[in-house]
Design a protein around this nucleic acid. Structure first.
Lengths: 202, 202
DNA sequence: GGCGAAATTCATCATGTGATGAATAGTGCG
DNA sequence: CGCACTATTCATCACATGATGAATTTCGCC
């Protein structure tokens, strides 16, 4: 299987963005199976390309992974969306709305899923996730929590809930929470998240 | 590496619980690397045994996994701990206390971690997790939520937060939440969880 | 139009995997 | 004691993986 390649050897005509297609395929397959589960061959096949070409462009599998994770969505934008008009009021609702936005679209879901899945099996990926969450997201969101005691802890608790929601809804697919409409989730979860901002906690 | 086996061929003396040791090693290694990442050879090595012996006892890797997942902790007991004196009051605190109890001890953490990690890579494991959560835990806990509108959804939202907490604290090891003492976590998270019971949500 | 560089595939390697079957060493029952 | 059974290892298979180097085809520049 997977033998259906283009033609024989040699360069293809025109100027196809093969590198980009490989990256897209990588995000997809890494997302479906995680770092270890995604074979270079499978990614190559998904891109309709020989596996050697993948190595030609990216050298090693690890470098391909890093390249595929290179922010295809902008963490800063996400942070901004969460902070919005600045101010703690409504931060819970904005957080879950942004979350559902990212996870709702396959284009942005794929890389995040890939990262999350891989972080569960590969220490390198876990490190990457940690950095991403810490620097790109928390670093900015913390502005909202400044002045609030234990702001970092509160913010991380919020993030942890969202990560768990992602797993239960998009990976394990536990019902009914996997099928409930977005709006209903917002009404359920936003006030709870909000409590991490409002709540008393010395 | 991994070549340091006991002696030569043949049965060992005495009546060692080798099968049990293999199961323990399996839980450990499955917990560290997930289903796909854990090789039969690695498990055998961790048990100080030839890999063929693992197959002798359990046949296939999948069967070994299932055997290793055979609840070495009692989900019913967990459910009971959460329900306790019965009544929604304090359900948030009891939930996170029970959670921290399970994840605090390596003996009970290993199999749950194994299941969670594997559920991220292997559909079979995801199915297993779903069943476990659905039947063993939610099935019982739902008694507390009966009468409450959308009880199932609320309960699952609670569970999702705890799963996310497990990942952030024990897998990705995000600081400071990974190092904060249990008691502090209880004070932070219990009231938030409680809101899933008390909160208004039509 | 020729020529070097880039894009692409093919053949191949070394390694690790799950699994199987045969061989050896110990146990316990008669 | 003898003999069946079990526990255990060793040798090996077929297969998938990540990686590399050589061969082939096309592009773009002078």
């Amino acid at each position: 299987m997977g033998k259906v390649l283009r033609g024989r050897s040699g360069r293809r005509r025109g100027a196809p963005d093969t590198k980009g297609e490989i990256l897209a395929a990588a995000r997809q397959v890494f997302g479906e199976r995680g770092y270890d589960g995604a074979s270079v061959r499978a990614i190559a096949a998904a891109a309709g390309v020989d596996s050697a070409l993948v190595h030609h462009y990216f050298g090693t599998k690890e470098k391909l992974f890093l390249a595929a994770m290179e922010i295809p969505f902008d963490p800063a934008a996400i942070a901004d969306a969460i902070m919005d008009d600045a101010g703690g009021a409504g931060v819970g609702e904005r957080a879950i709305r942004t979350f559902l936005g990212v996870w709702g679209q396959p284009a942005s879901r794929a890389p995040v899923l890939a990262l999350l899945r891989s972080a569960m099996q590969h220490e390198a990926a876990a490190r990457l996730l940690r950095q991403l969450v810490t620097r790109a997201i928390l670093g900015r969101v913390l502005v909202v929590f400044e002045g609030v005691p234990n702001g970092a802890l509160r913010a991380e608790a919020m993030v942890s809930h969202l990560i768990g929601l992602a797993i239960v809804r998009y990976v394990v697919k536990l019902e009914p929470i996997a099928s409930v409409p977005d709006e209903e989730l917002v009404r359920l979860i936003a006030p709870v998240l909000q409590q991490y901002y409002d709540g008393a906690f010395e």
